[in-house]
């Protein structure tokens, strides 16, 4: 079980995540939806500890992970794989080395710095690449691959970590529909076949509906919906994507006046 207890995160005076509490059972596939800036990315980065919560606690299987430091923190990050919108591979390294980077948390000594990895790790990396049909390009530079291929390599790198949970931050936002489908099916397959918990941030409502049994809606740093796809009715969607908020600004005459005054002053 992944538990968030009243987690908040502010950057300076701006609050990105406000008092979020959540419980996600092991093995679930959860979609997080919301507009840009709703706090979805920050939420995932808090769980992976790429940033630290301002307040609140995060627990995985009852173990508090929001206080980990040093080597323990690196171990946690390895257990908790991250997939990024822009893949975040090393573009000038070959595919195989990029995948082997996923095994770094298990390695000791200087070997990996000279690209010397144990033979069983190389074997595993090849099997991971084979499972996504990418062993053919194992020695190619990552930058020569298409976006969809790069995202699959990134997923293979994450799988090399033997993760217990995978956090995917807008994994398909830079991909075309066919590649999006492929990447989402890969993530769903990992969740189904390996029992890895998957949290995926998505812009698109229909993709979330198709692939996730549970959907969390965020708006302005807060959770405004948590339930199955069927419960996503028009009112809920308005609450998540804040259509009324947009209409308010454009239709509210007093705001227009304020803007005019400000411009006059300037």
């Amino acid at each position: 079980m992944l538990e968030l207890k009243s987690v908040s995160k502010s950057f300076g005076s701006k609050a990105a995540v406000k008092d979020v509490s959540l419980a996600i059972p092991v093995g679930s596939m959860v979609g997080i939806i919301g507009r840009s800036g709703a706090g979805k990315s920050t939420l995932l980065r808090l769980i992976n500890r790429l940033c630290d919560p301002t307040e609140g606690k995060i627990l995985w299987r009852g173990q508090p992970i929001s206080e980990l430091k040093g080597a323990k923190l690196n171990q946690w990050r390895a257990r908790c794989g991250m997939v990024f919108q822009q893949f975040n591979l090393s573009p000038r390294l070959d595919v195989l080395t990029n995948v082997l980077i996923g095994s770094l948390a298990r390695q000791r000594g200087l070997g990996p710095l000279f690209k010397v990895f144990p033979i069983e790790e190389r074997a595993r990396a090849i099997l991971e690449l084979h499972s996504i049909d990418m062993e053919e390009v194992a020695l190619q530079r990552c930058s020569t691959l298409s976006g969809g291929q790069q995202q699959r390599v990134a997923i293979a790198r994450t799988l090399m970590q033997s993760p217990e949970i995978i956090l995917a931050d807008e994994p398909i936002a830079s991909l075309d529909p066919a590649n999006s489908q492929n990447v989402m099916e890969t993530l769903a397959g990992i969740n189904r076949d390996r029992g890895i918990t998957v949290l995926v941030n998505l812009h698109a409502l229909d993709i979330a509906r198709r692939f996730c049994a549970r959907i969390i809606g965020m708006n302005d740093g807060q959770i405004v919906f948590d339930g199955p796809p069927d419960a996503l009715n028009a009112a809920v969607i308005d609450r998540i994507y804040g259509r009324q908020f947009v209409e308010n600004i454009t239709e509210n005459p007093s705001q227009m006046e304020v803007k005019d005054t400000l411009e006059a002053v300037a």
């Binding site: 190389r122 074997a123 084979h130 020695l139």
Partner: peptide, 9 residues
């Protein structure tokens, strides 16, 4: 792995 890609392992 060798069965899949002998040269890479």
């Amino acid at each position: 792995a060798i069965a899949i890609a002998p040269k890479l392992v």
